[in-house]
């Protein structure tokens, strides 16, 4: 029982990280109805930025904040420069652009920072502070995820800008008619997504270590999490993230072995898409023929 509890809590800890990245995916999906394949690499790139700041002697939390701002700007720039020209193109074109982005970010990082694996510090103390079942970094990651979710909720619920972004996502034409700059709202959505993704990157880097390919597996779990929770529902994505984290850890430890952990994500993704594409909390989409 002890071992089981331990696995569940460890699963919740990684689940928090998947939840953050899933949240980033949902942000972009809500704004543009696209699934960003480069989300993981954007987070990875931002994490390298944080790493260079910390290496240059900056304390952790200022570097953390600066990285979030940097990621936000990066997201906005990517949307304005690279995504905007293909916004209304066929899906294939958009997927190709995302893949190009993934490849470019991955190789540029490898070029600038080399492919050697680096350690990344955790802001939380090494000795367990949340009891014996969970590392303090794990507990901290869960906390950070929940804070991010809360901030997002407050932003969308209580600020005029949040309202404008929701309007732009829900009904672009009407939003434009009442004077909302829809294009900029989409760019802001990308910026927010990139910022949330950078938090996920900085939380996962102490666990998996920093290297240009570190987000491959995490992105897959985040896809699974977003789909399980419903890809248009932020709360659902967070729930999905924790669920996928626990499932992955418990199944990996007791049922199928660690090698097949990634297959859990594959089965979840295909299973959800085939059986219930709207996920647990998502809206059912109906297209008019």
């Amino acid at each position: 029982m002890d071992a089981f509890l331990h696995q569940v809590l460890a699963g919740l800890a990684t689940g928090g990280i998947y939840a953050s990245l899933a949240l980033a995916l949902v942000m972009i999906y809500q704004a543009t109805h696209l699934v960003n394949f480069a989300q993981g690499e954007m987070a990875m790139f931002a994490t390298y930025f944080a790493w260079s700041l910390i290496n240059a002697g900056m304390p952790y939390w200022p570097a953390f904040l600066l990285t979030v701002v940097f990621a936000f700007v990066l997201g906005v720039v990517i949307e304005r420069v690279i995504i905007r020209p293909v916004e209304n193109s066929p899906v294939l074109v958009i997927v190709v652009v995302f893949i190009a982005l993934l490849v470019i970010l991955n190789s540029v990082t490898g070029w600038v920072f080399s492919y050697t694996i680096k350690t990344f510090p955790s802001p939380f103390p090494a000795e367990p502070i949340f009891g014996q079942y969970i590392t303090s970094h794990g507990g901290g990651a869960i906390g950070v995820t929940l804070v991010v979710l809360l901030l997002l909720y407050a932003f969308f619920r209580f600020t005029p800008l949040g309202l404008a972004m929701r309007a732009a996502a829900q009904n672009p034409e009407s939003a434009r008619l009442v004077g909302i700059r829809v294009g900029w709202m989409l760019a802001l959505g990308w910026g927010l997504a990139a910022a949330i993704g950078s938090v996920a990157g900085m939380m996962v880097a102490p666990i998996v270590f920093l290297d240009p390919n570190m987000m491959g597996g995490v992105l897959l779990y985040a896809f699974a999490a977003a789909l399980v929770g419903g890809i248009d529902n932020p709360g659902g994505a967070v729930f999905g993230g924790f669920l996928v984290g626990v499932l992955e850890n418990v199944l990996g430890a007791f049922v199928i072995g660690n090698e097949l952990k990634l297959a859990v994500a594959l089965v979840l993704i295909i299973g959800v898409l085939v059986v219930k594409p709207s996920g647990i909390f998502g809206k059912v989409m109906v297209t008019r023929v």
């Binding site: 491959g216 992105l219 896809f223 952990k261 993704i269 295909i270 898409l273 594409p277």
Partner: peptide, 19 residues
Amino acid sequence: LEGLYLALATFALGVSLPA
């Protein structure tokens, strides 16, 4: 699955196969 979702499912297949 159509479009984006098929890309997603096949992407998952490609990522998880080495494991």
